[in-house]
């Protein structure tokens, strides 16, 4: 089976955000594989181990993203592709990313494409379904279970807490929700092997893409931090009197009940 995983390098969520000049400062911050993409990588490896084939992880970014690709290879992916847009694309949005990925994937005859259901930085959740639409293949988002039997694919997906059971067929794009699996940590031998696995680097030229074709459709005007919250009030006294004070505060001061 020909399996592709779309991954994104993201800011580690434990990091403190610093905004200056209307942009998030990334200098010195730790970066990780988007956590939802880790579920996608794990599932791809599981499917390959059960059905045979090859897992290719693909990302768009600059050379820094090689580290996250190596991590995916160390987990067990077979090949990695870095589409380096550093010199060609100044501003990227979901349209841009989906267009580039679809151009890369269009002649790959992928049976299964996996991605995270959302990236924890931008949080749009668009790129997977957009890629599927451009490739004219079916997609299922926020999946928590995947079973492939011949051409039939049985899926459970999370819909706002409820579990929807469905059937579809390959080729298919799915996006991973938490609960799909427990992503493995790269083992030491895995890390050693990953160093020798193929990592291909492409630029827009290699994909016959014009910069104008991928110009972002949306524009970020400003990035800012939420206003600092004032320290809250820790109530005092016996618990029962704190409770009745709380109820009256919620009703009269906060006016939420």
């Amino acid at each position: 089976m020909n399996i592709y995983v779309l991954v994104k390098r993201t800011f580690d969520t434990e990091e403190k955000l610093v905004v200056s000049g209307g942009q998030i400062q990334e200098d010195g911050a730790e970066f990780i594989i988007n956590p939802y993409d880790e579920y996608a990588i794990e599932e791809a490896i599981t499917v390959r181990d059960a059905h045979g084939g090859e897992v290719t992880v693909v990302t768009i970014g600059d050379e820094e993203a090689e580290k996250q690709l190596r991590t995916a290879l160390a987990m067990g992916a077979d090949k990695a592709v870095l589409i380096n847009t550093e010199d060609d694309v100044e501003e990227m949005d979901q349209f841009t990313a989906a267009y580039i990925l679809a151009e890369y994937l269009k002649d790959k005859e992928a049976d299964l494409i996996l991605a995270g259901n959302v990236a924890i930085d931008g949080g749009s959740g668009q790129v997977g379904p957009r890629v599927a639409d451009l490739l004219d293949i079916n997609y299922v988002t926020t999946i928590t279970s995947l079973e492939i039997e011949g051409e039939t694919v049985k899926i459970v997906r999370d819909i706002e807490g409820d579990a929807e059971e469905l059937e579809t067929s390959l080729p298919l794009l799915v996006t991973a929700q938490q609960g799909l699996n427990e992503p493995r940590y790269p083992s030491l031998p895995g890390i050693m092997k990953a160093k020798k696995k193929p990592l291909e680097e492409l630029e827009l030229d290699d994909l016959d893409i014009d910069e104008e074709d991928v110009e972002a459709k949306t524009e970020t005007i400003e990035v800012y931090l939420p206003p600092k919250k004032e320290a809250g009030r820790i109530l005092e006294g016996e618990i029962p009197s704190q409770v009745s004070e709380l109820v009256s505060l919620l009703r009269s001061e906060a006016k939420v009940i």
């Binding site: 955000l17 924890i120 949080g123 949306t218 524009e219 005007i221 400003e222 990035v223 800012y224 931090l225």
Partner: peptide, 16 residues
């Protein structure tokens, strides 16, 4: 819209 899981916000508009 919130970004970075609500740790920051961005103002966005359509470009063209």
């Amino acid at each position: 819209r919130p970004i970075y899981s609500g740790k920051a916000f961005e103002k966005v508009k359509l470009k063209e």
